[in-house]
């Protein structure tokens, strides 16, 4: 029974590999031998010794990343968002919120073990409190009782744990469907996913149940992110997303 789901995962991996191989160059195409000087060329405007905010972000796989960024846009447009919109239309608001709370509550497991790994007593205690209250009184997390009781919510993952222990970002990486990341956070996602999977195996969930849960989680996550690809009004969107993602993660690690 496990095979169907595993096969799906293998197909996804294959797709990524194909995209990676098909990734084209990021260089513009030039006609003729010599560049016709623009009014303001980079040579003329940019000084050699001037630093830029994005200088510290390494992006050696930009060709692949940009291709993946466009793939995500198309996936969003033709698959993800239509499904999300359908889900939002048929689901009453209170149920939508309940489902969202349910997944947020499950995420507290990830936050819990990463809070321990970051040696934070406060976060560990508060997250344990949240999880216990929400799972019991909050009916498996559907009602966020903990927030009404003013127990603060934290958001820790293994990428942040690595950052806490001094691991750098590594190269920027655009993941399929999930979007902006980097090598450190990508590894972090893998570890968090592995831990959750081990826990699920303990629960003896059926293959089909796991699949439904994963799909529901994906839909719920997308439904709660306002971002729309290529609608930010800037021709430099890829670069802005890279900068803002990196900045936000830096802030998350410090928090």
């Amino acid at each position: 029974m496990k095979t169907a789901y595993k096969q799906l995962q293998r197909h996804l991996l294959l797709l990524v590999a194909v995209l990676a191989l098909g990734a084209c160059s990021t260089a513009p195409v030039q006609q003729g031998d010599a560049v016709i000087e623009p009014s303001f060329s980079a040579d003329r405007v940019l000084g050699d010794d001037v630093a830029y905010v994005s200088d510290d972000i390494s992006d050696p796989w930009e060709g692949f990343n940009r291709s993946m960024y466009r793939f995500n846009y198309r996936f969003d447009k033709y698959v993800f968002l239509p499904v999300v919109n359908g889900y939002k239309t048929i689901t009453p608001d209170f149920l939508e919120q309940g489902i969202h709370n349910f997944f947020l509550n499950l995420e507290d497991i990830t936050t819990f073990f990463n809070s321990i790994l970051q040696l934070s007593g406060t976060k560990t205690v508060q997250t344990t409190g949240r999880f216990l209250v929400n799972t019991t009184v909050g009916l498996l997390g559907f009602i966020d009782v903990a927030t009404r009781l003013d127990i603060p919510k934290h958001d820790e993952d293994f990428g942040q744990t690595l950052g806490y222990w001094g691991v750098g970002n590594g190269p920027y990486l655009v993941l399929p469907v999930l979007g902006p990341s980097n090598v450190r956070d990508g590894v972090g996602l893998g570890v968090d996913w592995f831990v959750m999977n081990e826990l699920r195996d303990e629960l003896d969930m059926k293959d089909s149940e796991e699949l439904v849960l994963d799909i529901m989680k994906a839909i719920d996550t997308r439904a709660n992110v306002a971002f729309r690809y290529y609608e930010t009004g800037t021709p430099f969107e890829y670069d802005w997303v890279k900068l803002l993602y990196t900045t936000k993660r830096k802030m998350d690690i410090e928090k």
Binding site: A27, P28, Q31, V35
Partner: peptide, 10 residues
Amino acid sequence: PKNVTMTKNS
């Protein structure tokens, strides 16, 4: 530059 074209991936 006028004689430079930006592709989708540039």
